[in-house]
Nucleic acid binder design. Sequence first.
DNA 1: AGTTCACGTTGACACAGATCAAAGCGTGCA
DNA 2: TGCACGCTTTGATCTGTGTCAACGTGAACT
Lengths: 245, 245
Amino acid sequence: MHAQVAHLSVPALREACSQCNLRELCLPVGLSGAELGQLDELVQVRRRVLRGQHLYRGGDPFESIYAIKTGFFKTDVLLEDGREQVTGFQMAGEILGLDGIGTEKHTCNAVALEDSEVCVIPFVDLENYSREICALQHHFHKVMSREIVRDHGVMMLLGIMRAEERLAAFLLNLSQRFTARGYSPTEFYLRMTRNEIGSYLGLKLETVSRAFSRFQEEGLITVHQKHIQILNVAGLKKLLSDRRV
Amino acid sequence: MHAQVAHLSVPALREACSQCNLRELCLPVGLSGAELGQLDELVQVRRRVLRGQHLYRGGDPFESIYAIKTGFFKTDVLLEDGREQVTGFQMAGEILGLDGIGTEKHTCNAVALEDSEVCVIPFVDLENYSREICALQHHFHKVMSREIVRDHGVMMLLGIMRAEERLAAFLLNLSQRFTARGYSPTEFYLRMTRNEIGSYLGLKLETVSRAFSRFQEEGLITVHQKHIQILNVAGLKKLLSDRRV
DNA sequence: AGTTCACGTTGACACAGATCAAAGCGTGCA
DNA sequence: TGCACGCTTTGATCTGTGTCAACGTGAACT
């Protein structure tokens, strides 16, 4: 059943799901070798998205979901008055576009924050394959469910945490996701501006900037522009648990 | 294929999906007559949850999702320090428990705000049936996607709206959902306390109370305890669009 | 090398909403 | 019938974050 891999072009083959080093983070999780071969068939198209370009926009017809192969994205919703709510930041191995399934139109914008490449997964095909491949079906459900749980986490950020707690939670979350991808847990470059962080965290950019400065004064992190180094992970975590009433 | 309906007990039969008046709002949307019959097979158990009782708690093993047949629920997440973030209010025809799929444990609490009844849908069965019934598979994906989109809406509430806008959006959302269920768009009883509304909207109960009073002074609504009457829908909507910078 | 421009930092002040406090109201129970 | 308790309303005051403004900084382009 996975003989058809042979007719993929060589570059495509080299980057097929079965060969992809993100397969433990992405859709293929839990699939057997033969099933992985089928998945290679599902993902026929890749798309480059340059920094600042949209992968899709709110209102675009929904046809595919996207797995990030390389790069970094934000998703946001804009109000008529121009205000922006960033709903998430996505990195390699994460899935974009799930918001469009319900209405058959995308309901937010997805913008590359650095030059990126995504695997295009036509949604009808995904549904077809997941009727055949149990593990794919189940894992896709898990991906959607985790997105819901992640959103609940953001609600907690926005609903009950104060500015410094929000930023600490944000940094720890990034750290953990970089770690899962084999990067340093304590040193990384932010791909987004202070304004985008603020929009995600429900804060103004000045407040984000002040919180960064405060963390630095307290020896929790160093900040040089977008370069962050976490000096005291425990200290950041303590900020989260030490919530006064 | 739907002959097995015959072996359901009479009260169960009377309330089967195929007979349920919520079928246009709930999981069965888009299913043919024969497929509906199969769904009756899927939902074998119903469960009563009295006001104040938990349907599930964070940490409980995940086995089923739940369709609300009658009643009203809230879902929330508690922090160690006792703070509560209400993540949603659910009414008849809506699905509870999707948060548990990803980790195989529930990640929030679901509490009945009035005596309620839910249809228990074992998740492995749902996955089995949805491999056979295309329309079920697709509709289930839509339900999950809409939950994600709903969560984005809450993020916007929490991230960029001010107190009165949040409450207006909340009332309009309830109104619209009651309408879809055949109730009055302009007159309803709140099932939740001011504190719970506040927790959902990221506000303190006093702020919620003051906003209600303010709306009443302005002739937008009347409030008597939990009884709400919307006098000026357009006025409430205007509050949302009239966002100053 | 200098200019430009977007992004970031810092300070002063304002204000929406939180906090604290007290009193009102309704329902259920003894 | 009256008491108790949870919920709500309202007022007075406090405070975290927003707003406004000025200045700093680094990268890209001329």
